[in-house]
Design a protein around this nucleic acid. Structure first.
Lengths: 151, 151
DNA sequence: CCAGATTAATCAGGGCACTGAGTATTTTTG
DNA sequence: CAAAAATACTCAGTGCCCTGATTAATCTGG
């Protein structure tokens, strides 16, 4: 059996793309705060007081991973975690001042990094790039998170 | 400062795409052998006897990660690792019969999975999808792995 | 009202991904 | 030829990512 051509395997390309991004993020945005951590901060800027599970849903992280990410952000004083008095199962999350400051600072750098990352593409191609990736990712996520079935 | 729109952040999309692929791989290809492990097997089908570092280069994994992946594949009897008598620093890698069998089996399933994964796109769109991701990933990898500079 | 189902979070365990430091071996160079 | 540089690999440390099992709290139906 001949070897497969990995350059036509979307999973392999997705991994390479993500790794390339990881390196550029480290070089141009932050060595302290990672891209998933920034996504969490960003979500809490938009919707302060969310519980942990919902934040994970917003940024696309499962219950275990979001717990670790939030624990790290809490340790570094970027967010606070308070038991919901209305529902003792939940922890409600808010950015600290330091967390909000960090988010502002990184937002600027992230925009610069995205320019460099997408430099090989024209403006039209970028639009297509986003559209195609979003459609594939949404569809694949839909396979595992089925919509409410008809009852 | 307003929150950023993560759906226009290529790094965030890349991560979601990779995660969606990870889940589909687990469901449709194998729970034992991961996608990076398959990439290593595939490389050794094409070029038996490569050393560890070169395999890592082919599949896009750094020295530490490739060491772990190869160690796991070795433990499961899918490949053999032999000291190069010509150069005592290197280990040369070959698939075992079991490794070659596994590669054959997974190649078929991987093709099926890719069909499902790419189902949202037309044939033309798939070509564009590969082209755009490859260009961005290649360019970003080039930023860190500079070509031989002019001397 | 209360037993059973559901839900949010945690924990244990396996795998991927990187950096920086260290070891052994080979190659280069003075 | 011996000292210095380069190379292949290993190890320790951090962080992301998932599943399955467990715990605590809430909700639901009889």
């Amino acid at each position: 059996m001949a070897a497969a051509d990995l350059t036509t395997h979307p999973g392999h390309l997705a991994r390479r793309l993500q790794q390339a991004h990881y390196l550029l993020w480290n070089a141009m945005v932050s060595e302290e705060v990672t891209s998933p951590q920034f996504a969490v901060l960003n979500t809490l800027v938009a919707e302060p007081g969310l519980d942990q599970r919902t934040v994970g849903e917003r940024v696309g992280l499962d219950r275990s991973t979001i717990a670790e990410v939030i624990s790290r952000l809490g340790r570094r004083g970027l967010l606070d975690k308070v038991r919901d008095p209305q529902d003792g199962r939940r922890s409600l999350l808010h950015l600290t001042d330091e967390g909000a400051r960090t988010h502002r600072r990184l937002t600027v750098r992230t925009a610069r990094m995205n320019q460099v990352f997408l430099a090989p593409l024209t403006a039209d191609e970028r639009t297509v790039f986003f559209d195609l990736i979003r459609r594939v990712a949404d569809a694949a996520e839909g396979l595992r998170n089925p919509e409410e079935p008809i009852d």
